[in-house]
Simulated scan of single mutants.
Amino acid sequence: MLEKTLSIIKPDAVKAGYSGKIITMLEENGFEIKAMKKIRLTKKQAEGFYIVHKNRPFYDSLTTFMSSGNIIVMVLEKENAIADYRNLMGATDPAKAQRGTIRALYGKNIEENAVHGSDSKESADFEIPYFFSSIEIL
């Protein structure tokens, strides 16, 4: 069964010029891009998106980072999209990510790790409409 997930190319990877390479990796791994746009979050928008982490010690630095520059948000679709994209992203800490994963190739550290992806169907169901209306998703 086809599944959708949210992907974000984070400010560090956009600024470094890795967006095209990351998008190519997605397509080469069978993901269909159903929606895509480049935006810049305000601090308040980043706080709303990462609300699940509100009580975590990294919440403020994460939301500051995510509102520090342009990001590319995408809706990806394929069979097992959530699990497959998490595998393609690699471990949160790029130093621990498997060779050939997005984070191993393009991440700097545990926070500036190039990409975000939904971690469950419930997360995807919250995250996708945070950025896209139904009319924007092909």
Rank of each mutant, 00 (worst) to 15 (best):
Q45P: 05
S67D: 07
L26A: 10
N109I: 10
Y106S: 05
G17V: 07
M74D: 01
L138S: 15
D84R: 11
Y85L: 09
G107D: 06
S68A: 15
D93I: 08
K121F: 14
A46L: 05
R103Y: 08
A13Y: 01
K34H: 08
S68E: 13
N109H: 11
A124Y: 03
A97N: 09
S7F: 09
I51A: 15
F31H: 04
H53G: 05
I51D: 14
A95P: 04
M66P: 00
E28H: 12
P129L: 10
L6A: 00
Q45K: 11
E79Q: 12
D119P: 04
G48A: 09
K15C: 09
I8C: 01
G107L: 05
Y59H: 13
S123W: 01
M66T: 02
V52Q: 13
D12V: 03
I128S: 02
E136C: 00
T63S: 03
D125S: 15
V14P: 02
E112F: 07
K37R: 07
L62D: 00
L62T: 03
T63F: 05
S120V: 12
I72K: 00
K4H: 13
Q45S: 12
I82W: 05
N80F: 13
I128W: 02
E112L: 11
G17K: 07
Y130D: 01
L105Q: 12
N55R: 08
K44A: 15
T24E: 15
I9Y: 02
I135G: 12
G20R: 11
D60T: 15
A46G: 07
G100C: 11
K38D: 04
A124F: 05
L105T: 11
T5K: 02
I33S: 07
S61F: 13
L88Y: 09
K108E: 15
L6M: 10
S7P: 04
D119A: 09
D125N: 15
I23A: 04
H53V: 06
A97M: 12
R86E: 04
A83L: 12
S123V: 02
R56S: 11
F58L: 09
S67R: 02
M89K: 06
Q45R: 10
I51K: 14
F49E: 00
T64L: 14
H53P: 02
G17A: 08
E27G: 13
A35P: 03
S133H: 06
F132K: 01
M74I: 00
E112A: 13
P57G: 08
G17I: 07
A104P: 04
E79F: 10
G17Y: 08
I102Q: 03
G117Y: 03
S19P: 03
F65C: 09
K43V: 09
L105D: 09
A13T: 02
M25Y: 08
K10L: 06
I71M: 00
A104W: 08
R99N: 14
M66W: 01
R56N: 11
F49Y: 03
A81P: 05
N29A: 12
E112K: 12
E27H: 12
V52L: 14
E122W: 11
G107W: 04
G30E: 09
S123Y: 00
S61P: 06
E3L: 06
